[in-house]
C-alpha cells in the first residue's frame, strides 16, 4: 500500500482538480460580469441583471433540452423551428374564447410531438441525428409557417401573458421557469436511473446495450424532452411578444443552444457534461450580448465578438481538461 501522506496528497490533488473541472466556465462568467461593470458602470444593477436573466431564459430552456441530446452523443438542430411551431399553436389556441389558457399545454405538447418524431426516427430507424434534425429544421419551419398562414398572429389579450412579462417577488417569471427547468434537468440527470443511462449511452452506446440498458428509450427520451423544452420555449416567446410568427421566431436559436452546451463543457462525443455547465454557458452568451449593448457596440461587431469568445473559451477549456486528464 502507498504511504498515508502520499495518499492524502493525491486525494487532495484529485479533489482540487475535480473542483476546478466542476467550476468550468464559471470564472469566465464572473470575469466577464466584472469587466462589463468596470467598463460601463451599469452592468451589475438589479434592473440590468433582471433583464439579462430574462434574455437568457429561453436559451437556457432550449439548451437544457440540448444537454440531454448532446450527452447521448447526438445533436438537435430542430429546436428553433419547433419553438416557432409551438408558439404558433399556443397563440392560436389562446384565441379560443374562455379556453385560452389551453394554449400553454398545447404549445408544450406540440414541441413534445415533434421531438418524439425525431426520437422515433433516430432510435428505431437508426438514422443519424444530424440528418434527421437537419431535415426537421426545415420541415418544421415550413409547418410553422403553414399553421400560421405565413403571417404574424396576434393576441393582445393573451391569457398567459404573465409568463412572458410578469414578476414574482421581483424575479421575472421567464427566469423562474428557466430555473425550474434547470432543476428538473439536474434531478433527472443526477438522481434517476434514466439519467445514469443517458450518460452511459452517450459514453458508449454498444456497451450500454450489452449492459441491458434500453438504448431506444434513452434516445427517445432525449429527443422528446428536447422537443418538449423547445415547445415550452415557444410558449415563453409568444407570451413575451403577445404574438407568434412562423418565419422569424426562433431563427438560429438552435445554434445559441448548442453554443451554451459546448461552453458549459459538455462533450460533443457524449457521456460527459452537466446541466450546471449549460446554465453557465447560456448566461455567458446572455451577459456578452447585454454587456456589448451597454457598451454601445454595433450589432455587427456583437456577432463577431460573440463568435470569437465562444471559440476561445472552448479552446481554453479543452486545453485545461487535457492537462488534467493526462496526470
Amino acid at each position: 500500500m502507498t504511504s498515508t501522506p502520499l495518499r492524502d496528497q493525491s486525494r487532495v490533488a484529485t479533489r482540487m482538480r475535480s473542483t476546478f473541472v466542476a467550476l468550468g466556465m464559471l470564472p469566465v462568467l464572473i470575469l466577464l460580469a466584472i469587466a462589463f461593470q468596470l467598463m460601463t458602470g451599469k452592468f451589475l444593477t438589479g434592473n440590468n441583471l433582471s433583464i439579462v436573466m430574462q434574455q437568457a431564459s429561453i436559451n437556457i430552456v432550449l439548451a437544457a433540452g440540448m444537454t440531454f441530446v448532446i450527452l447521448t452523443a447526438g445533436i438537435d438542430l430542430s429546436v428553433g423551428s419547433i419553438l416557432a411551431a409551438s408558439a404558433i399553436v399556443a397563440v392560436k389556441i389562446s384565441l379560443w374564447p374562455g379556453l385560452g389558457l389551453l394554449g400553454i399545454p398545447a404549445g408544450i405538447l406540440t414541441g413534445l410531438a415533434f421531438g418524439l418524431f425525431n426520437g422515433v426516427l433516430i432510435s428505431f430507424l437508426r438514422l443519424p441525428p444530424f440528418i434527421v434534425t437537419l431535415g426537421a429544421l426545415t420541415a418544421v419551419r415550413g409547418m410553422a409557417r403553414l399553421m400560421g398562414d405565413d403571417t404574424t398572429i396576434f393576441n393582445p389579450d393573451l391569457p398567459f401573458a404573465f409568463i412572458g412579462n410578469g414578476n414574482i417577488l421581483g424575479v421575472p417569471c421567464l427566469a423562474i421557469i428557466a430555473m425550474v427547468v434547470v432543476l428538473l434537468s439536474w434531478f433527472i440527470l443526477r438522481a434517476t436511473v434514466l439519467g445514469t443511462w443517458i450518460y452511459a449511452t452517450g459514453g458508449n452506446q454498444e456497451a450500454a446495450r450489452l449492459a441491458g440498458i434500453k438504448v431506444w428509450l434513452v434516445l427517445l427520451f432525449a429527443y422528446g424532452i428536447s422537443g418538449l423544452f423547445a415547445g415550452l420555449g415557444g410558449v415563453m416567446s409568444s407570451a413575451r411578444l403577445y404574438a407568434a410568427n412562423g418565419l422569424q421566431l426562433g431563427q438560429s436559436n438552435e445554434l445559441d443552444a448548442i453554443a451554451a452546451v459546448i461552453l458549459g463543457g459538455t462533450s460533443l462525443v457524449g457521456g460527459v457534461g452537466s446541466i450546471w455547465g449549460t446554465l453557465v454557458g447560456a448566461l455567458i452568451i446572455a451577459v456578452l450580448s447585454n454587456g456589448l449593448i451597454l457598451m454601445g457596440v454595433s450589432d455587427i461587431w456583437q456577432f463577431i465578438i460573440k463568435g470569437l469568445v465562444i471559440i476561445v473559451a472552448v479552446a481554453l477549456d479543452r486545453y485545461r481538461m487535457k492537462g488534467g486528464a493526462r496526470t
Binding site: 458508449n204 456497451a207 450489452l210
Partner: peptide, 12 residues
C-alpha cells in the same frame, strides 16, 4: 470498447 463506461465512476 464494449464493456466499461470509462468516464463514469466505479460505483456507476
Amino acid at each position: 470498447g464494449l464493456g466499461l463506461f470509462l468516464d463514469m465512476t466505479i460505483s456507476d
